[in-house]
């Protein structure tokens, strides 16, 4: 077993994450190799220092604040959902009403316009004077009559 291999296995060795035969092999190597023994000690010390960090108790009122805030968040979500539902109904009603108005009043005005357009396409060689503008009756046509 090489020092390089031991170095790559030092942390799982410290953490007890290696199979028994590998643990025994590393232990045997470290007993004979001072460099690997030093590296093992350095990594182990860091682990112990982090594990020995003192407990930091939470603020006394954190538990009550968490219970209050977290459990009320569900109520807030439900209220938001109901509000969204109401808004959805209003929006849908507005769209339907708008569509009805469009069909009843506006679409009727469009019919003659499409007929005129169709007529214009049927007579591409027709030229118009100011009294017979097919798109805007009463408005003079601006292009010149060809020679």
């Amino acid at each position: 077993m090489s020092c390089r291999y031991v170095s790559s296995r030092i942390d799982p060795y410290i953490d007890g994450e290696l199979p028994a035969d590998e643990i025994a092999a590393i232990r045997s190597h470290v007993a004979r190799c001072s460099n690997c023994a030093s590296e093992l000690a350095r990594h182990r010390s860091v682990k112990k220092l982090v594990a020995a960090l003192p407990a930091s108790p939470p603020p006394g009122d954190l538990e009550a604040r968490l219970v209050s805030t977290v459990l009320s968040s569900s109520t807030a979500t439900k209220q938001a959902s109901v509000s969204n539902l109401k808004f959805g109904f209003v929006a849908a009603a507005a769209v339907i009403a708008g569509f009805a108005v469009y069909n009843t009043f506006l679409k009727r005005d469009e019919a003659p316009r499409s007929e005129i357009t169709a007529g214009a396409q049927l007579h591409p060689d027709r030229f118009y004077d100011g009294a017979s503008n097919p798109l805007s009756p009463g408005v003079p046509v601006s292009f010149d009559r060809p020679r």
Partner: peptide, 11 residues
């Protein structure tokens, strides 16, 4: 669950 785990989670 909040009451039993919040201190550990805070840590």
């Amino acid at each position: 669950l909040i009451r039993t785990t919040h201190a550990q989670a805070f840590q």
